[in-house]
Design a protein around this nucleic acid. Structure first.
Length: 808
RNA sequence: GCCGAAGUGGUGGAAUGGCAGACGCGCUGGACUCAAAAUCCAGUGAGGGCGACCUCGUGCGGGUUCAAGUCCCGCCUUCGGCACCA
């Protein structure tokens, strides 16, 4: 079969017939299959895109044939840094390059022969989309979920710009290799932390890969403990967070993070110079370096003291950069005897180390970081750690000096970017009125085209006078627009909500429609988004629910990550390695169906693996085999006949194939599903050699074979479907279901084991009881011989599988 | 350091505690052919035996079980993620 021609033929026909058009009248049967949309890169569609979209689309087609009204939209995550960097290098405007890349990719995507309904296409960089991104920003802002504050960011002193974490490699700017420093800038944040607990709890409701759930749990990082208030000599106080209140009696110092606001107030005159030097040193260390646990702990004494509320002991106050201002209270208590970091710190600076928890094993080594029994702890002596944590925090609470507290590692999401190619932030800064939201009827705030985005330390939009200068919507006086753009992850946090109502120019989406179409039933994409996109999207869904727009709690009920296809050398495909396999070259040779089928058969879908050249030929061979057997089956007239043994055997294989393929496809185990189909084809070839064939059975099996193949090789199946004289699209036919009457066997083959070693095989009638089976087993010649002179001590029968005789 | 996943023939990869290696690639042999290609059929974990068969075999070491790739304990290696979170 000339697949290239066949594929073109059906692609055209399907487009003409609008085969993949979503039928809104069948919304009650909807099945929303979503593949993560892609970034329109100049590098075109690569094997990774194909591996995501091809098999996922087969799943969508499978659902369609099962009678669901499948909604499978496609679009582009079109804002972002690569286009801007490309523009800086080449001078080609990001908008122009992006739109051009989208055009190319649309053409390539069509060659996948996916069930995409292009009427619902989204491009996040177009005003009709980002207008609503801005609208959502304003809803979050108006409800206290978006706020502005000063925060440390990665700053490249040479490029004079802020860098995203991903642009910092080993503490240096990826472009100029200059050491990145931290700098405080006023930035927009989304209050994702407000949802920390729900984001954590609801993970249990999701049909998601366990790995991804674990990653999100870690990322949210719930930590149950308490706060302890330390008084200052001058009358003030501050709090520390701890999970080990049981060790409170062993505090020998406290540490504030260098950025803690109390540091300047408390530092004594004679310590000022050392403290200033230390803070200066810290600011030069990147956040990434600072967060490394292998770094030696450093710090300085600030000259002041704090009072331990439980025993009124006076302890020195230090600052150290291992204490993070952004976690907990930005201050910790130092208990060197029971914490490794504190132990290292105290040893280095000669601070006292007092044991307050005894080791039940009697071992005296310090630090001892497990739970135990309290010692040297006054009235708390003898309590276990578990008891003491509760007792001490209760007591502190009664004293008004602390109590139970839960902390999360999750931080609020910093969404400002000092970049051009992104969604403008719809806020106006007015000297008189403060931060003023752009009135909703004035959205979108359009991204201006003529902007100088060469990096020079200022946000590109700040240099565009006609953009930045505006009037305050409240007082009418001159004011300035926010000069930053939004992180592109903001755009992708709600696109799945826009798809089903993508042409709506009055609302971001019609809640009426969205609440019927969502949540997404099956979401397919890379695992690299576990703690970014997938978390942000969950947050948006919950926030929009609480604002009254959505009636569901989670956006993606079920999630699947595809693996990664590596180059033939086993390394990740990359231009620099020269190991990139081009999908275009392959589909030009063997066609899109064969390429898709190879991707689905050659790898375990969730694992991926290295590309293998010769595998693809075996797939075209298989397709040829299918074509030949189908032709053979339809070469004779089908007549009703009584079923022979061989007919029944074929029917058994056919129906068990249907059963297994259905079950495997459901769980994305495509390689085994296709293996089962190959087995069916092998059985058909065996049947072809039967003298007295029943062409009715033969043809029925081949017809169902075509249906089974349709989701995996849509054009190929469609062509065969037409060739055997069927009307309409194969994709509109019902997916076959197994007829259980053909799955009943008259007899079974069982293995016979002696002492768990295979010794023989027997065939027994299907209705034999265990006793009969054992008799048959014992009567086999081989077994008889093996049993000579031995005593049977146990007889085990596993129906339909084996008999095991345990002998002495 | 912590969390997660994985380790099976020459190879990609299969196996609700129940016949390890499905299916495919490769290889070997046969049929067809003057020959080749294509196709079809058969074989293909290792070792031993003329043979029916026997022994060993799922990273390593133990264990539970009639039975372990699968469950438990202790390791090794690889990959992914997090990493001074108090």
């Amino acid at each position: 079969m000339d697949m290239l021609q066949v594929e073109q033929k059906w692609r055209d026909k399907w487009e003409k017939d609008k085969l993949y058009s979503f039928d809104k009248s069948r919304i009650d049967k909807k099945y929303y299959v979503l593949e993560m949309f892609s970034y329109p890169s100049a590098a075109k569609l690569h094997a990774g895109h194909w591996y995501n979209y091809g098999p996922a689309d087969s799943f969508a087609k499978f659902k369609r044939m099962q009678g669901y009204e499948v909604f499978e939209p496609m679009g582009f995550d079109a804002f972002g840094l690569p286009a801007e960097n490309y523009a800086i290098k080449t001078g080609i405007h990001p908008k122009d390059s992006t739109l051009k890349n989208i055009e190319t990719m649309e053409e390539q995507l069509k060659k996948i022969n996916g069930s995409f309904d292009w009427d619902y296409e989204i491009k996040t960089c177009t005003p009709d989309y980002y207008r609503w991104t801005q609208w959502i920003f304003l809803q979050l802002y108006k409800n206290g979920l978006a706020y502005r504050k000063e925060a440390p960011v990665n700053w490249c002193p040479s490029c004079q710009t802020v860098l995203a974490n991903e642009q910092v490699l080993d503490g240096s700017c990826e472009r100029c290799k200059t050491t990145v420093i931290r700098k405080n800038l006023t930035q927009w944040f989304f209050k994702i932390t407000q949802y920390a607990e729900e984001l954590l709890q609801d993970l249990d409701k999701l049909d998601w890969p366990a790995k991804t759930i674990a990653m999100q749990k870690n990322w949210i990082g719930k930590s149950v403990g308490g706060e302890v208030e330390f008084a200052l000599e001058n009358g003030g106080n501050f709090r520390v967070f701890t999970t080990r209140a049981d060790t409170l009696h062993g505090v020998s110092y406290v540490v504030l993070s260098p950025e803690h606001p109390l540091v300047n107030k408390l530092t004594t005159e004679d310590c000022k110079k050392a403290v200033e030097n230390y803070k200066d040193m810290c600011s030069k260390v990147s956040e990434i370096d600072r967060m490394s646990s292998t770094r030696e702990k450093t710090g300085v004494f600030i000259g002041a003291y704090a009072i331990n509320p439980i025993n009124n002991k006076k302890v020195p106050i230090w600052i150290a950069d291992y204490v993070l201002y952004s976690y907990g209270t930005g201050a910790v208590m130092g208990v060197p005897s029971h914490d490794e970091r504190d132990f290292a710190f105290a040893t280095k600076y000669n601070l006292p180390i007092t044991r307050v928890i005894s080791n039940p094993n009697g071992n005296d080594d310090l630090p001892y970081c497990e739970y135990g029994v309290l010692v040297n702890s006054d009235e708390d002596n003898g309590l276990t750690s578990e008891q003491a944590i509760i007792a001490i925090l209760d007591r502190l609470e009664k004293m008004g000096k602390g109590g139970k507290k839960v902390n999360y590692r999750l931080r609020d999401w910093l969404v400002s970017r000092q970049r051009y190619w992104g969604c403008p932030i719809p806020i106006i800064h007015c000297e008189h009125c403060g931060d003023v939201p752009v009135p909703e009827d004035q959205l979108p705030v359009e991204l201006p085209y003529n902007v100088n985005f060469t990096p020079d330390g200022k946000s590109p939009l700040a240099k565009c006078d006609e953009y930045i200068n505006t009037v305050c919507p409240v007082c009418g006086r001159p004011a300035k627009r926010d000069e930053d753009t939004l992180d592109t992850f903001v755009c992708s946090s709600w696109y799945y909500l826009r798809y089903p109502d993508s042409k709506n120019n009055k609302q971001a989406f019609d809640p009426e429609i969205i609440n019927k179409m969502l949540p997404v039933d099956k979401y397919i994409g890379g695992a690299e988004h576990a703690c970014m996109h997938l978390l942000y999207a969950r947050f948006f869904t919950k926030a929009l629910r609480d604002l009254g727009y959505l009636k569901f709690d989670e956006p993606f009920t079920s999630l699947v990550h595809q693996g990664t296809i590596l180059g033939p050398d086993g390394f990740k495909m990359s231009k620099s390695r020269g190991n990139v396999v081009s999908p275009d070259d392959i589909i030009c040779k063997v066609g899109s169906d064969a390429f898709r089928l190879y991707l689905m058969f050659g790898f375990s879908y969730i694992e991926g693996g290295p590309w293998n050249e010769n595998g693809i030929e075996s797939i075209t061979k298989f397709m040829d085999r299918v074509e030949r057997i189908v032709k053979s089956a339809y070469s004779n007239k089908a007549v009703d006949k009584e079923l022979t043994k061989q007919d029944k055997e074929l029917l058994f294989v056919l129906n068990s194939t249907i059963q297994k393929v259905t079950a495997d496809t459901e769980i994305f185990s495509f390689n085994t599903a296709i293996a089962r189909i190959m087995e069916l084809v092998n059985a058909l070839y065996k049947y072809e050699q039967v003298e007295d064939k029943n062409y009715k059975v033969f043809q029925d099996a081949c017809y169902k074979l075509i249906l089974l193949l349709a989701p995996f090789t849509p054009c190929f199946a469609e062509e065969l479907h037409e060739q055997i004289g069927e009307k309409g699209s194969v994709l509109n036919k019902n997916y076959p279901t197994a007829e259980t009457k053909y799955l009943v066997k008259d007899e079974y083959e069982l293995a016979v084991q002696i002492n768990s070693k295979n010794r023989d095989k027997i065939v027994v009638p299907a209705d034999s009881d265990n006793k009969t089976i054992i008799e048959i087993a014992k009567n086999s010649d081989i077994i008889k011989k093996q049993l000579e002179g031995k005593t049977i001590v146990k007889e085990i029968v596993i129906p339909k599988r084996l008999v095991n005789l345990v002998v002495k």
